[in-house]
Amino acid sequence: MSVRKAATIAASMLMLIVFIRINDDVSGYLSSLKNTPSVAVSTMQLTSEDEERQRLMSIISAEADQRRIAPEDARIDRVWKAIPGYNGLEVDIPKTLEAALKEPSQSTIPYVFKEVEPKVKLNDLGAYPIYRGNANKKMISFMINVAWGNEYIDSILKSLKQENVKATFFLDGSWLKKNAEIAKQIQAEGHEMSNHAYSHPDMSALSRQDQYNQIAKTEALLKSTLNVTNRWFAPPSGDFNSATVQIAAQSGLQTVLWTIDTVDWRKPPADSIVRKIAAKLEPGSLILMHPTASSRDALPGMIAAAKAKGYAIGTVSETLSSKRIPAAVEGTD
């Protein structure tokens, strides 16, 4: 065999080997595509989901700026003294995005909100009396000061229960000591129990030590008899001085007065009380009453007047809290 012929045969054999190797690689590649179509599809799905997530995030973030309501700081008013703050409202972007991704059509976005507390809270203001809640919070409270009038308490509790209303009862300490079972009945109905001094004195006429004793004795009874951790002090007859407010604050209490007085101790007709309350009612109003026949008879009408104006009715703690009330009640969110 000639050298040229041998070289030709060798070249042909090499080309055949290369062809077979290339053919095997192509076949393997094609086979791999046939066996793993989900990889390509999955990659496309992830890309589509990411794009949708980014689209929704862009919409939600832009809308969040428009829907934000700034919190309102607690402040000192020239007339009303300490005024509670009011929580702001803003879109919870991560929770809203999560909720939107679960919507079948994603055509509407179910916005989820969260409250934002003010920087300055009621406790930050120092020792000032409080006469009302925040004017942007459409909630009012009944303050029921109890030092006498046991015969009307059952009827008042019945009216409150029928209307699903919780009130704040400010208890005279000497009354509480004699009427622990009645106090426990009031508490069992879910009402708030607070401090009304011990023997119904004019606080401003007392020494600092005597003022302290009046508050401390009742506070101890609230704890020992009812296991109450109290926040509020209502001075008897609304009589106080700067020392009263300071001593209450040193005892961990804030001094609360009222926005509207039923003056029920004068025994006015129930309908005149209802008309007065209906005319003067404003957001944040604290309504003073006692367990008297006049307030017993007026209470259902007072509650009806408040509800007719769209007010939520809560305890003093609820009304003076910076927490928002439901938008259905508030009508502004």
Rank of each mutant, 00 (worst) to 15 (best):
A248W: 02
A305L: 10
W265H: 06
I303V: 11
E192N: 09
P283E: 06
L222T: 09
A293L: 13
A197R: 02
L299M: 12
T225L: 15
Y212W: 13
G173R: 07
G238N: 14
M289Q: 14
K280M: 10
N164H: 11
K184C: 07
A197I: 04
T229F: 02
W232P: 06
N227I: 05
G238E: 11
P268R: 10
S174A: 14
E192D: 08
E181F: 09
K178V: 00
S224G: 01
K217D: 11
V263R: 14
D239N: 15
I303H: 04
E189T: 03
V228C: 13
P201E: 13
F240G: 02
D202G: 02
R208K: 13
L281W: 02
A180V: 14
I182G: 00
E282A: 15
Y212H: 15
S272R: 11
S285G: 06
S285M: 06
F233P: 09
Q187T: 07
I303R: 04
A278T: 02
S204L: 03
D210E: 14
P291M: 04
T292C: 02
I287Y: 07
A216N: 14
T225C: 09
K223I: 01
I303N: 03
A248Y: 05
N195M: 04
E189A: 12
A248S: 14
W232R: 10
N230W: 02
Q185D: 09
T292N: 05
A305P: 08
K184V: 09
P268K: 07
G252S: 01
K223P: 00
T218H: 07
K280G: 14
L226E: 09
A188W: 03
N213V: 04
P235D: 08
Q214H: 05
L226Y: 11
E282M: 13
K166A: 09
